[in-house]
Every structure is written in C-alpha cells, then in structure tokens.
Design a protein around this nucleic acid. Structure first.
Lengths: 207, 207
DNA sequence: GTCTATAGGGTGATAGAC
DNA sequence: GTCTATCACCCTATAGAC
C-alpha cells in the first residue's frame, strides 16, 4: 500500500532475471549476485521475495518445463488427423524453441541430474506422461490398418519427431559451426526446417 | 622409482573418477571431494596430479568430445555409398551412446555454456568442422542427380540423422517415463532403434 | 521494500609432515 | 606419493538500519 515501488514490478524483474540466469548457466553455476545484477537490485532483496535460491529455482524450472511440454500435450490430445497432428507438433515446437533458445538444454540437463524431478512434475500435471503417447499410438495403428501409412512403431516415430525437431537447438553451437552460420542464419535454417521435417516424415511413412 | 604405489594406477583411478563425476554433474556442480571419494583418495592428491579443477576438467572434456565426434568423422569421410554411410553413422552413434549414457548431454551442456570451446576443439582437430558435411553434401547431390533419392537438403538430412539418433539419449529421463521403461527397457528400445532409424530414413529418401 | 554489513558454511588450493 | 591441517576466498542467507 505504501511501498516505495510497486512490488509486483520488482518481483517480475527478479523472475525475468532469474529465468535468464538459471536458463543460461544452470542451477549450480548460477550466482544469486548474477540474478540481482541482471534485475538491477540487491542480493538481499532476492531472499526477501523468494526466501532461497532453491525455491527460486523450483519456480523457474516448473515454468520452463510447462512451456516445454504444455502446447505439446494439447496437440497430442487433439482430434487432428495423424499427419496434420505431426505437422502441428513440429511447427509448434520449432516456434517455441526459436523464442526460447536455451530452454531444452536447460530443462534436459537439470532433468538428467535430477530425474525424480520429472516424476514430481508428472504428478503436478495431473496426468501420467505415458498418456501422451496413448492416443497417438492408437491413431498410428489405425492409419497402418487403413493402409495410409506403412508399418511403424508409434514410440519410435514419436522419438524421431522430437529428435529431428528439438535436437538442433540442443546442439546449437555445434550446428552453427558445422553449417557455418551465425545466429540469424541458424534461425533461418530452423524456420525452413518446419516444412522440411514434415515432408521428410510424410515420405518416410508412405506405404 | 621408489613410489609407495604405482603412480600410473592412481592417475588412472583419478581420471576415471573425474570422468564419472564431471560427466554426471557438469563442471559447476562437481566437487573435488566427490572426485576424491570416487577415486578412493584424498583431495590434496588431485591437485598433486592435475594442479587445478579447471585443468582436470579440460582434460576430461577433450577426451569426451573426442569420443563423441571421432568415429563419426571417420565414417563421414569414408568411401561407403550414401545409404550405407547413414546406416554406419546410426549404428556407430547408438553403440557409443549405449556405452556412454551421459556423454551427449554433458558435452552439449558445456558447449552451450561455453561455445568458444567448440572453436578451440575444432582447431585442435586440425580440420574445420564444416568439412564434416562437405563430402556428405556432394554425395547427397550425386544421388539426387542419379535419381536414387529424392530432392533433399544435405544439411537438413544430417541434422535429422543426428537428432533421431542422439536425442533420445539426451532426453532419456523423459523418454523412460513416457515409454514406461526402466534402464534395461530403454536400452532395448535403443538397440531396436538402430534398424528403425535406418529404415525410416531410407523410406524418407525414396524418390 | 530496499539497502549495507556480516554471519556461517563450503570449496579450491597449498604447506608441510610422513 | 599420500596424508592432515589450514588458508583464503566465495556464496547463500540473515540481521538490522533506513
């Protein structure tokens, strides 16, 4: 009520700063001072707002995971036909990843170091992650039966889609050097890739 | 000459321990004490052998990157026909990754945080990494011209191969939960995947 | 709410005995 | 070569003034 500054504004600045620092450096390498500097405030204030580094990290991490998985879940459960669904997944993921370059490496690194976190997140989401594949698998098998695509293991297909889409972002520094691109060039290649991947998969599935 | 222990043996134990700890936790989260415990020796001895944490890390990291890229380079430059080359790449990578589960996420994470390291490695390797794709691109274009495969961008194809092959290992904790597998089950799926990916690509490239 | 100062604990590195 | 002890620094977290 009688704050010197709108506290919401400070809190938002901190969250943005924490996001940036944690995402780029990971939990262990991130310093509270980095975050404070990035937010343009004092270290002590971070603790005033979020109590501890751990609590702050958990918050950010949950948010990031949500971005990483949220849209995907919706598309997977949607009523699109298989090939359109695949196209939607690819386009959605690449769009997200272009906007959040460090997102996948950050999430995957922390999950690898702390796999049980994945279970916690799964429970938070309300549904078991294995459901993600259930509907998709049924659809794949239906298309196979109908003869519109060739015999394919749904799980293997799903991994391929994700790998083709996400991996270049995870391996971004390597890709940039091998393809001799700067950031702008890299992003261009990824935009082209939206259509490229979809075509590739459609041909691979053709009976 | 008058050592209490064969120093080679201790050095080896330290390197193995350092490898394990750095690879699992990353540089920032790794503690010298973790490595000492893992090697069954004292912290001070680490410094006696390798002077500093940084030097030790650099050593391990170089080795790991070599494993990650070495065989790949040879296959890429070999005289196999395109489709056999692709098959060889997939099988080689998956074999390596089954033996070194944490390898890709470790290397890619550290490279993301320190992209200039990639340039240093490139120079060390003697050849510019962009050469990796040169021969491959020529071969792809030749096959297209010969009509044996359909119009395809070589760089995009290469990223797809790498993504399909490496990504599941990077996302291992996620994959395990979505597919409801334990470690043994995951590894089985990956072994099947060797053939699965190759088939997938062959069909995708069919004119 | 925001700052300065500082407590309290951990970590990399070195000195020195054996 | 290997150990124990210790230094010097860094980092999270809190106390207390404003």
């Amino acid at each position: 009520m009688v704050n010197k500054k709108d506290d919401n504004q400070t809190e938002k600045a901190i969250l943005e700063a924490a996001d940036k620092v944690f995402t780029q450096k990971g939990f262990a390498a991130a310093r509270m001072e980095d975050i404070a500097n990035e937010a343009g405030i004092n270290r002590a204030l971070l603790h005033y707002y979020f109590r501890s580094k751990d609590k702050m990290f958990d918050l950010i991490f949950q948010q990031r995971v949500a971005i990483f998985f949220s849209g995907l879940g919706q598309i997977m459960q949607s009523e699109k036909r298989l090939l359109e669904k695949i196209q939607a997944i690819v386009e959605h993921e690449i769009t997200i990843l272009l906007a959040h370059p460090y997102l996948p490496i950050f999430v995957l690194q922390e999950l690898n170091q702390n796999p049980q976190r994945m279970l916690a997140i799964a429970e938070n989401a309300g549904a078991h992650p294995s459901l993600l594949l259930k509907k998709f698998s049924v659809e794949v098998r239906a298309e196979i039966k109908a003869g519109t695509i060739r015999e394919t293991d749904p799980a293997q297909l799903f991994m391929s889609i994700m790998g083709m889409t996400i991996y270049p972002f995870v391996a971004r520094p390597v890709v940039k050097i091998i393809l001799e691109k700067d950031d702008a060039g890299f992003e261009n290649v990824m935009r082209q890739r939206k259509k490229g991947i979809t075509d590739f998969i459609i041909h691979a599935l053709k009976p």
